[in-house]
Amino acid sequence: MYDFEFVKPSTIAEATKALTAEGAQALSGGQTLVPTMKQRLAAPGVLVCLTGIAETKGVCKGDGGLHVGAATPHAVVAREAASHYPALAALAGGIGDPAVRNRGTLGGSIANNDPAACYPSAVLGSGATVVTNKRKIAADDYFQGMFTTALEEGEFITEVAFPIPEKAAYVKFNQPASRFALTAVFVAKYADGVRVAVTGASNDGVFRWSEAEEALSKDFSAAALAGLSVDHSDFISDLHGTPAYRGNLVKVLTARAVAAA
């Protein structure tokens, strides 16, 4: 990879300033960005490492639900969120492999917004709030298509606040080589309705399956999905699955998630 200047600020203010430099790029755990840089698909002049900021790390229960620092590694979320939000903890504990989970972070995952990543479905499926160094963004406004988010130049995530649901489950159809989701569904039942977020299916990245949400809000059972099907016209097509195959998986996995919740 091309060389760059590496900086590791220890406060949000220092990081905000460092990211104003020409060609600056934020780095979190590096499990996606480092391989991308090796392939020279990214060549930042300055890499601003965000894992040294104490206030963006850790898991704690607060007013907005469960607050997870953006620089918290998956392994820590898997452990520390388990008693508060088991579905979120289980999702974090199933990302990649143990070594990846010790480095990869929540903030890095949703800033990248890979269309097959696990975390975007938990954030959207929980109706979470994405907190940045500049503002708060509702999950519904945050995800804007494959590898695209509401983050602006110089903006980085500091934490995500997850409202804690009555019940929830994440069911992932594993792509065993990459350990990303071939397709996966996050279902969460709140007092005011059910949210269903799907990853690994659409060319637009994570999305909410609104017909299923409506049906499950009336009757939270796998049977409620019986007559439904998801529109797969803009689904991902690759050697692992056709759009129709992924469309069927969405329904099957949603039913499994409801049963598991």
């Binding site: 590791k8 590096g30 499990q31 480092v34 010790n102 480095r103």
Partner: peptide, 11 residues
């Protein structure tokens, strides 16, 4: 455990 090929020494 971490994958040392994906971690910068300065980090």
């Amino acid at each position: 455990p971490v994958k040392s090929c994906s971690v910068f020494a300065q980090d």
